[in-house]
Computed example of a mutant assay.
Amino acid sequence: MSAVERPPVDEIQSLYIAHHGWLNGWLRRRLGNAADAADLAQDTFMRLLARDAQIAAREPRAFLATVAHGLVANFFRRRQIEQAYLEALAALPVAHVPDLETRAIVLETLVEMDRRLQAVPPAVRSAFLMFQLDGVPQAEIAAQLAVSVATVQRYLVKALHQCCFPA
């Protein structure tokens, strides 16, 4: 990508100066936490810096809110995954609880797999999770989803491909 296609830093700087305080307040009201709001406000502007397109926002606050809204959704989804993982860890015997570094790696992997699986249709995701996590046989998945076993097999291949080779 050429430098011309990237948004000019001064354009983002102007947005930052004019609207960062507003965005931070907007996020704080949604999150109920000043620290998380500050982090997501910064992440919003970092996302803009990473874009490969010009920013021609006629309504800068609506534009920033749209970008931040996606980050808020990701934030809450990550929090759900983290909570589920912590609950699973709490059920383990103390001797089997992984160290902090391993837990961080596993959590990042879970979040990334969730992100990748969000890119496939719900039926594909459901089939994959039933098969991989619950050990449901393919014939039973086919019955539950009202599709053929061959379709379930295609779903499993599609989901596995998405997990290993995302677009």
Results as ranks from 00 to 15, higher is better:
V152Q: 04
C164S: 08
R79D: 13
A123P: 06
V149Q: 12
R116H: 08
A57K: 04
A50G: 09
A84C: 03
D52K: 11
K158M: 06
M1H: 07
F45Q: 10
A84T: 09
C163M: 13
I81D: 01
A104M: 04
A146H: 12
T66D: 13
R125M: 03
R154G: 03
R116L: 13
A62H: 08
L31S: 03
R51S: 12
L23I: 06
W26E: 02
A95F: 04
V157G: 00
Q153A: 11
R78M: 02
P122Q: 11
A123F: 07
S14V: 01
M113R: 15
A41C: 11
H96T: 07
A56C: 10
V97T: 10
Y155P: 00
P121F: 08
Q144H: 05
E11F: 01
Q118M: 14
G135Y: 05
E101W: 05
M113D: 13
G21N: 08
E87L: 13
H69M: 07
G135V: 02
I55T: 04
R103C: 07
Q118A: 15
L27C: 03
A104V: 00
E5K: 05
R28K: 14
L117V: 01
H19M: 01
D43W: 01
R30S: 09
F63M: 10
R103H: 02
P93V: 10
V67T: 09
I55P: 00
A90R: 09
Q144G: 07
M113A: 13
A56K: 11
Q80T: 14
I17A: 15
Q80E: 15
D99L: 02
L89W: 00
A139Q: 13
A143I: 01
M113E: 13
V4K: 06
R29W: 08
P60V: 03
A91L: 09
L129S: 00
V4F: 06
V136S: 07
M1V: 08
A37V: 01
Y16R: 13
M1W: 05
A159Q: 01
D10R: 12
G21M: 06
W26R: 01
A3Q: 11
A127W: 01
A41N: 05
A167T: 08
R47E: 12
E82W: 03
L92N: 02
M1Y: 09
A127L: 04
R30D: 06
V111T: 07
T66G: 15
Q118N: 09
P60Q: 09
P60F: 03
W26D: 03
R77L: 06
G70D: 09
Q80A: 10
L31K: 05
A56E: 12
